[in-house]
Structure formats: C-alpha cells, structure tokens
Design a binder for these strands. Structure first.
Lengths: 152, 152
DNA sequence: AGAAATCCTAGTAAAATGCTGGGGATTATA
DNA sequence: TATAATCCCCAGCATTTTACTAGGATTTCT
C-alpha cells in the first residue's frame, strides 16, 4: 500500500507549479531544482499530468507549464490518479468473466477492497490544490528563489 | 497503492480459518486447497499472522491453526497491517533528523499522507472478521468440503 | 515407528520501480 | 535568421520488490 515516487514527487511538483505559475509559465528545470527532483524524471511526471488534463505546456524558449484549471478545481485525487493510475487497493474487475469467481470468499474481500477504495477517494477528492498552496506559503513564506535561473 | 498478494491471500485465508476453526484446528493444506493458494506460500503468511498474535498454531499431526482471539475482536486492519506492514501510503518519519526537511513543500504533502493514512485505518479498523465470515456463509452456504482431506 | 503437521531459512525468476540518456521539435528572443 | 531554451518521445537499464519454490528440521498424534 505504498505510493510510488511518481505520486510523491508529482504532487510536490504540482503544488510548486501552482504556487509559481501565477504570473508566467514555469519550466521543468526550476521546479526540479526547487524540489530536488531529477529533471528527466520530472519530465515524465509532467507528461502524465498533461495527459490527464491537469497542466498545459508551452513549448519553446521561455515556455514551461501552467495549470490547466484553477488550483481550487484540482483535487489531490486528480493528481494522484493521474500519476499512479487508479488508487483502488485491489483490482478485481473481470473476475467473474474469467474465473467465474473461483474462490468463494473472494467476493467477501471484494467488499473490503471497495470500502477501502471509497474511503481513499473520498479523502483525496476533498483536498484541493489551493489549500495546499496556502499551507506551503505559510510554512515557507519566502519562496525559494523566485524566478530561479535554470541552466546554472 | 496496490495491496500485494500477502494482503489479498492472507485476508481470505483468515476468513477461511475463522469459518472452519470453530470445532478444530485447521491445517494449512486445507485452507490452501479451498482458497487456491500455494501451501508453501501460505505457510509464510500464517507465520506473519502468528507473529502479530492473530492466530495460534498447534504443531504435530492433526495440528493446524486457530484464531488467537474471537473473530469479532480481529479487524481487517489488524490482518492487513500484520501482512503488509504499516498501511500508510508514504513513510516520512526520520525526515527531519536525516535531511533536515530538505524540500520545503514536503511538509505540506506530509499532511496529505497523514489524512490518507487516517482514512484507510479508520475504514479497515471498523470492519471485523466475524462480519466477513457471516457474509462468506451467506454467499457460499454449503462450505466447500467441510473437513477437507489434505494429502490428496 | 511413521505420518501429519508446523517451523525456518534460503534461493530465484519475473515484474515493477526509478531513474538516465539521446536526440528531435518548437518557439521566444537577440 | 541564429541561437538557445524549452518541451517531447522513446529506449535502456540497474535496483528493488514480489511471489513464489525448495529443502530440510522439529513436533506430536496415532
């Protein structure tokens, strides 16, 4: 039941992006340096977030990323699902069709997995990005290196 | 955020054990055959459940396993934590001591992980084994092979 | 004694994770 | 128009984790 680095790094990156992309597009390198994440790896995470419609990219010099929606309309759940895939703890779809419900008790545990899934989703879907940005500002008011230079 | 086979098999196995161990100790081979799990692998799962104090073992011929507590006193959370370790999605203990809170925003995400952790634990801690046994009986009343022979 | 069990430890193939690297396409800016 | 700063795409690869399998020792009932 562990979240991979995709989810961990990606959420941090998106909070960072939300915080610094108000005035202009933020390039990967500046998020990466602030957050201590490899640029190449972060690239791949941003691709996932883009595919999910959470960020928009602007190509070319002085390009970068911006949020595709307002921060108050992006939930932690949106972000984590974009990065990790479904958050359900066990996939038991196509269980009936393939094996005809082989183990009788599996249906019982299915109910358990559904409950866990629901509770996770409820929790992450009611936490919105703007709240986290606010907290981030409160915890670290200065904002490490506004408009940080990249190719250093 | 996936549960491993340890958690999936192990919970099924313990529901099975709870159901069939009322009159006598249940050997691994009979749980394994009913649930379609490798005996050798199940052995290891039972060792984890024993270490956690959820089951007791009886060695020697006509031995096997029984619950260490009543089924209504064992929660799904107890079982899953015994098998999977902590269910928290991210471990950020020893974060301050080692890296001195390297990334400023990590503290923000820490709050997120805590919330997820709480909701998972709340959910699994209020589902008790006896409820699942009841459901199992309702879904599969006959009980596949009462006192099933093993070395067949 | 013999069979039926649990116990303990080690090995191991396959999959997933967490990156790194090369090179191309696009676009602002000098 | 050149150049540099970006995003974009895909491939490779080392490490870790998972999900077992295997061998053998120990205990205890019959």
């Amino acid at each position: 039941m562990k979240l991979s680095t995709k989810g961990r790094y990606g959420l941090r990156a998106l909070i960072d992006l939300a915080r610094y992309s108000e005035s202009e597009a933020v390039p990967i390198c500046s998020i990466a340096s602030r957050q201590g994440i490899s640029e190449r790896y972060l690239e791949q995470l941003m691709a996932l977030l883009k595919k999910a419609g959470l960020v928009k990219s602007i190509r070319g010099a002085s390009g970068g990323y911006v949020l595709a929606r307002k921060a108050e309309e992006i939930s932690v759940g949106d972000v984590l699902r974009a990065l990790e895939g479904s958050l359900e703890p066990v996939k038991c779809a196509a269980f009936y069709s393939e094996e005809g419900c082989a183990a009788s008790d599996s249906c019982v545990t299915k109910y358990v997995w559904q409950k866990i899934n629901e509770s996770i989703n409820e929790t992450v879907d009611k936490m919105m990005l703007d709240e986290l940005v606010k907290e981030s500002k409160a915890l670290n008011p200065c904002g490490s290196f506004e408009g940080s230079v990249c190719g250093s």
